[in-house]
Nucleic acid binder design. Sequence first.
DNA 1: CGGAATCCCTATCGATACTG
DNA 2: CAGTATCGATAGGGATTCCG
Lengths: 122, 122
Amino acid sequence: METQYKEKTFFTSKDLALSVIGGRWKIAIIWCLLQQSPLRLSEIQKYLPDVNQRMLIRQLRELEEDKIITRYVYPVVPPKVEYELGEIGLLLEPVVTSICDWGDNFREYLEKDVNKNQLNKI
Amino acid sequence: METQYKEKTFFTSKDLALSVIGGRWKIAIIWCLLQQSPLRLSEIQKYLPDVNQRMLIRQLRELEEDKIITRYVYPVVPPKVEYELGEIGLLLEPVVTSICDWGDNFREYLEKDVNKNQLNKI
DNA sequence: CGGAATCCCTATCGATACTG
DNA sequence: CAGTATCGATAGGGATTCCG
């Protein structure tokens, strides 16, 4: 989902939003930073073990370009970098929450389905 | 985002949700079906001119497998097929709404930014 | 520690053409 | 109309190495 909003002239709200948060791991990253903030790269990696480092860094860069997150570099040795949600990024909380809520519903729905199938087998 | 929840044993709610609705065009498709339902393939294409037909069909199939949408085939010539949100799919309305709302906020945020930059140039 | 860089492979995407 | 088929392009991703 690397269509940048900067390149296009017109967007509906959903297209604009999806161009920014539609990336493969972006919602997951934002979820992390809503759980705890700021986070160092290595900490995000612990939250998201399935994402390889290169991808994670790419997605973090894109989010940074779009001002969703802020990246603080401390000039120390060894390096210390912290990521944090910006003003507009924090407003994504309802999006993440509604997705998690729906996930809960979907899980229940799946379990109901399993029960139904088990009943059918009797 | 073709990690199917069926293959994994454990998921957080967000991972489960993202495995189902995280696909490239799925939120957009669900958005369409919340605007109007049922919709024929050609009608969805009008809503989403940026999505090519093959991708659209693939994503529709995946959503169908996951019971998010229902596909009705009328046995007529020429073919008529209608897509509709299912019970659990309809519950995605808050997700889509919150994304659109955030898109509005982000647009405002961008415009503020433009103004700031213009002021800086004076 | 937090990356950048490289190689390399696969999955997904997208356009076009074709079909019942 | 609602799809398949095909093919080349691109994004995703793993592993490893190197650097300040």
